[in-house]
């Protein structure tokens, strides 16, 4: 239950497996996706599909640069994004809001004019306070011993509650199947002592897998390094254990604001307000009961 956040570990992280009934459990693991070194090869998308036998999600021309996948969903568990910006890499804000990129053929864009291509491999965030897991009425969604969030396909009855609950728009119902699907952080591979397929396939180490505490140390070092090199817009997303979802199990190094990457700028788990919501419902329910008495008292006259 995430109405109360799991207590912090000595290293400053949070341990959701411990409050989910795992007395003995391995370190919490996750992803650090360093988008500054993503080259957009989509090896992660392919490796994920292959390993997890995720069905195809259509061959579409979306007009989103080299992104023909669209967004995360029931049949897309890793998604590589392509963002084209008229901006010299390493400069702060110059030329950010330049006119439509389509007006200028890509080949004519000289380096001095400024052009940068942001690429990022998006994935389920495996939240510390996971809304999907909180609202699931069947227990199909559960917290693993690794601190990740996984759907049990043999339990899910397709009620769809987790879909609008997720603040990141990740989990979705699969058409023709009825159940919901999302990244499992390769639960089966973790059990066998392997790293997730996407991380193993990533040729630049943009996707790093490991114990979350270690990844955060590495990520902070990387941000400092980028700032020193003049890439002042580098920042971490989801690394703060005190944010609205208690921090993410899959966090990111971004080169622009989160919303540019289809990430909510300040996500909050909706169940955080659950006690207040039941309070409001209790008052409304009482009003309805009082109205019953009133109607029969009034009707008596």
């Amino acid at each position: 239950m995430s109405m109360t956040l799991p207590p912090k570990t000595p290293s400053g992280g949070r341990d959701p497996a411990a409050i989910s009934g795992w007395a003995q459990h391995p370190d919490r693991v996750g992803f650090f996706t360093d988008t500054s070194i993503c080259i957009g090869c989509k090896a992660c998308e392919v490796a994920c599909k292959e390993w997890n036998e995720v069905p195809d999600d259509g061959l579409n021309w979306l007009g989103q640069s080299y992104d023909h996948t669209g967004e995360l969903g029931a049949d897309t568990w890793r998604h590589v994004q392509f963002i084209e910006q008229r901006k010299r890499p390493g400069t702060a804000d110059e030329g950010l809001d330049a006119p439509l990129i389509e007006h200028v053929p890509l080949a004519q864009l000289g380096r001095e004019e400024g052009f940068r291509w942001l690429m990022s491999s998006d994935v389920c965030k495996h939240c510390t306070s996971a809304a999907c897991l909180d609202v699931c009425p069947t227990g199909a969604l559960f917290r693993t011993e690794f601190g990740t969030v996984v759907v049990q396909a043999d339990i899910c009855n397709g009620c769809g509650y987790c879909v609008p609950a997720c603040p990141f728009g990740v989990i979705d119902q699969r058409r023709g199947d009825g159940r919901v699907w999302k990244c499992t952080l390769c639960y089966d591979r973790l059990k066998g002592g392997f790293e997730p397929a996407c991380a193993q396939a990533c040729p630049t180490n943009s996707i790093q897998f490991g114990p979350l505490d270690e990844l955060k140390v590495r990520a902070n070092r990387r941000v400092r390094q980028l700032h020193e090199q003049g890439f002042t817009d580098a920042r971490l997303y989801g690394a703060d254990p005190d944010d609205g979802v208690g921090g993410l199990g899959a966090f990111f190094l971004l080169m622009d604001e989160p919303e540019v990457y289809r990430l909510p700028p300040d996500p909050v788990v909706p169940t955080r307000d659950l006690p207040a919501m039941w309070g409001a419902a209790a008052k409304a329910a009482t009003a309805l009961a009082v109205a019953t008495v009133a109607a029969f008292m009034a009707g008596r006259r």
Binding site: M1, S2, M3, D134, V135, C136, P137, T138, G139, A140, I155, C156, N157, G158, C159, G160, Y161, Q173, D177, G178, R179, V180, T271, L274, M277
Partner: peptide, 23 residues
């Protein structure tokens, strides 16, 4: 009828969760 897997409706009573208003 709204369930993706209507035959599994009884799974609604598989667990009791206060964090899930649907439960």
């Amino acid at each position: 009828a709204d369930l993706g897997r209507p035959e599994r409706f009884a799974n609604m009573l598989r667990v009791a969760k206060v964090t899930s208003p649907m439960s």
